[in-house]
């Protein structure tokens, strides 16, 4: 049976270490703030006018279904702001990678892994603790920034239709469900890599590969190949649940105490 005391202790330890590192703290705070400010600025700048030379006719045909009865200016704003939804989904993926990638390989380099593994903690408790320690700040920061974004939207002068859209099911699914699922995938992948390599930089670089599918979504929408709507969100959620289950399973399987201890140089 899992010991929540052990899991809590690992989270506590990881946070105590991570938050002493100013650069990591900077990454956790700066990027969400940036991703909150940018859409607000975008909305403020584009409110009350269509983008010069822009018209809904310029938008990908598939996207027009998202706009429904919106006026052309609002539809344009929703199109622009929808790109930022992808960034919001990416945040919980980017933020924890640094923490998670360093989690096992960092313990290897400081030689603290052996005494840690000599305690009665189980592999599952250790991995859950490390995963949560990386995922919670990322999801928390994303949700906090989304909350700030929602509060500040009225100040941009965006129309009611736009405000309703960013509080609609597509955005809520994206931020509240896809985000945490992305975080779980990211931390498990990063921890898995971290337990197999000997250099923290390699772990970080390899874990960053996960951003590629999300970028595919972004460019897919920009190119008009897909539209981020509720249907697509449900497909993404299903795929992420499957990916998370696979990554958790592989992470636990690939974390071989003996190999980690004896092959580490």
């Amino acid at each position: 049976m899992l010991s929540f005391r052990h899991i809590r202790t690992i989270i506590d330890k990881e946070w105590a270490e991570v938050f002493k590192n100013k650069m990591v703290l900077f990454t956790i705070v700066l990027m969400p703030l940036l991703f909150t400010a940018l859409p607000l600025i975008m909305l403020y700048v584009t409110t009350g006018s269509t983008i010069p030379g822009g018209d809904t006719a310029d938008l990908p045909e598939m996207f027009l279904s998202v706009c429904g009865q919106m006026d052309s200016a609002s539809c344009m704003q929703v199109y622009v702001i929808n790109q930022f939804l992808i960034l919001y989904m990416m945040l919980p993926l980017i933020i924890p990678i640094t923490i998670a990638a360093y989690s096992i390989v960092g313990e290897k380099t400081t030689r603290s892994l052996e005494p840690l593994l000599a305690t009665p903690i189980s592999t599952e408790e250790l991995l859950i603790g490390k995963a949560l320690a990386a995922a919670i700040p990322a999801v928390g920061a994303t949700w906090l920034c989304f909350f700030i974004f929602q509060i500040l939207i009225p100040l941009t002068g965006a129309s009611q239709q736009v405000r309703a859209y960013v509080l609609g099911p597509t955005w809520l699914l994206g931020v509240l469900v896809v985000g945490p699922l992305m975080a779980i995938a990211a931390v498990n992948f990063a921890i898995m890599v971290s337990s197999r390599v000997n250099d923290p930089r390699v772990a970080e670089q390899m874990a960053a590969i996960l951003i590629v599918p999300v970028l595919a979504l972004l460019f897919g929408q920009v190119a008009g190949l897909l539209v981020i709507n509720q249907q697509l969100m449900l497909i993404v959620i299903s795929a992420l649940i499957a990916a998370d289950a696979l990554l958790i399973y592989l992470g636990a399987r690939l974390f071989q105490r003996e190999t980690i201890l004896t092959r580490w140089k």
């Binding site: 330890k13 105590a16 603290s112 892994l113 005494p115 840690l116 009665p120 903690i121």
Partner: peptide
Amino acid sequence: GMYERLSAEKNLSIYANL
């Protein structure tokens, strides 16, 4: 293999809990 950024007390508290 101690956690170098943490205090001596914190290091021991972590292990006492584990």
